[in-house]
Simulated assay, not measured.
Amino acid sequence: MYNNTFSKNIFIIAPEFAEQRIDNFLHNKLKGVPRSMIYRILRTGAVRINKKRIKPWYKLQTGDEIYVPLIRIMRPQDMNISKKMAIVTALEDSILYEDEYIIGLNKPSGIAVHGGSGLQYGVIEALRSLRPATDFLELVHRLDRDTSGVLLLAKKRSSLRMLHEQLRENSMEKNYLALVQGRWPMHVKIVDVPLLKTIQLNHHSTVKVHQDGKPSRTLFQIKEHYSHIATLVKASLVTGRMHQIRAHALHIGHPIILDNRYGNSDFSKHFKGIGLQRLFLHAATLSFTHPHTKKITLISAPLDKQLKNCLQRLRFSATPLK
């Protein structure tokens, strides 16, 4: 059953739409049509501009004649809204930057970067369904499932290779915001201790400080104190080990709030009482050399509403945990 039909449409591009990408133009014009369907008809050549096939990133010119074929979409109540669709919907609104070479998005907390470990669907699978016309799409790096913030993906193999080289050379700058328990000491600005990966009985991986571990180095900067209750810190990765910031914060004696592997569960309960339901670790900025333009590119991801509300409560309430 279908409730909407877009018959054979012809659009003539007015000057105010010039330089807009064709995929974005169609997404705005064809209300209710999933972006994945738009990419499919572009990829297959069903959409023509001036009677020619075009790429999804084609930029419109004044006077362009766009031909769009018959499109049918299902009624929302007839659709099987699955967990996959929920992830796709969340990510569609989380894209911070995109061009022909890379995608930068603000990954929500609670979504894994890829399927596996009992998860059938993650960021990479969702984005591939959103970008069916993209022949190549791979993760440049990873974020923990419970960590939010900037995640970078490559749309070309050459881009992935160049960005991975920056990771190996530690020339990619990654800065996080973390809310930690207690008052972070002023003198602790660098944590430089080796981390060893371990496997727990439930098959979950963790890391611990150990002399046989891999060299691991994190820079910390105090951003804001909240009495003796908590501290907002900026954590900058010099190396990129699994759970590095979380393990280093624990090593100093100030674990991240609501960290279910390295945190203090009794202390975290107080924060659940003020509405925080997730790990307070956010990849705030990512700076790198663009694989095509060779210019320094900075992508910033804002805090989500839950993290902002938590900080507001800590700032303005005299007794935030009561």
Rank of each mutant, 00 (worst) to 15 (best):
Q20C: 02
L30R: 11
K29I: 09
R40A: 12
I13E: 00
F17R: 05
A18G: 11
I22M: 09
N24M: 13
A18V: 09
F17I: 05
D23K: 09
Q20E: 08
K52F: 03
F25N: 06
V47L: 08
K31N: 03
L42N: 00
D23Y: 12
P34D: 12
R21P: 08
G45N: 08
R35V: 14
I13G: 02
N50C: 14
L30W: 09
F25R: 11
I12D: 08
I22E: 05
A18S: 15
I38L: 00
H27T: 04
K31H: 03
F17E: 11
R43E: 04
D23S: 15
I13N: 02
F17L: 13
K31E: 06
H27N: 07
A46S: 14
H27I: 01
T44Y: 12
T44A: 13
A18H: 05
H27Y: 07
I13V: 13
R35D: 12
N50T: 15
Y39C: 02
K51D: 01
A18E: 15
I12V: 15
K29G: 04
F25Y: 15
I38T: 00
P15M: 10
N24D: 15
I12R: 14
F17T: 02
R21W: 11
R48F: 11
I12C: 11
I49K: 01
R43A: 07
I13C: 03
M37G: 02
K51H: 02
F11V: 13
T44W: 10
I41D: 03
I10P: 00
N28V: 11
I41A: 07
R40M: 06
I10A: 11
D23C: 13
V33S: 02
H27A: 04
K52P: 03
I12Y: 10
L42I: 02
P15F: 06
L42V: 03
S36H: 10
R48A: 10
A14T: 12
P15L: 05
K52Y: 06
P15K: 14
L26A: 09
Q20F: 05
N50F: 15
A14Q: 13
E16K: 11
R35M: 12
R48I: 09
N24Q: 15
S36I: 04
M37L: 09
M37H: 07
I49N: 00
V33Y: 00
I49Q: 03
F11N: 03
E16P: 11
A18M: 12
I12P: 01
I12E: 13
K31Q: 09
I13D: 01
I41Q: 05
K51P: 00
R43C: 04
R35H: 14
L42P: 01
F25T: 04
N50K: 14
S36R: 13
Q20H: 07
A46C: 10
F25P: 03
I22Q: 06
K29Q: 14
S36E: 04
G32H: 05
I41K: 05
I41V: 10
T44I: 10
F25I: 06
A14V: 06
N28I: 07
K29P: 01
Q20A: 05
R35G: 11
I22S: 06
K51C: 00
D23G: 13
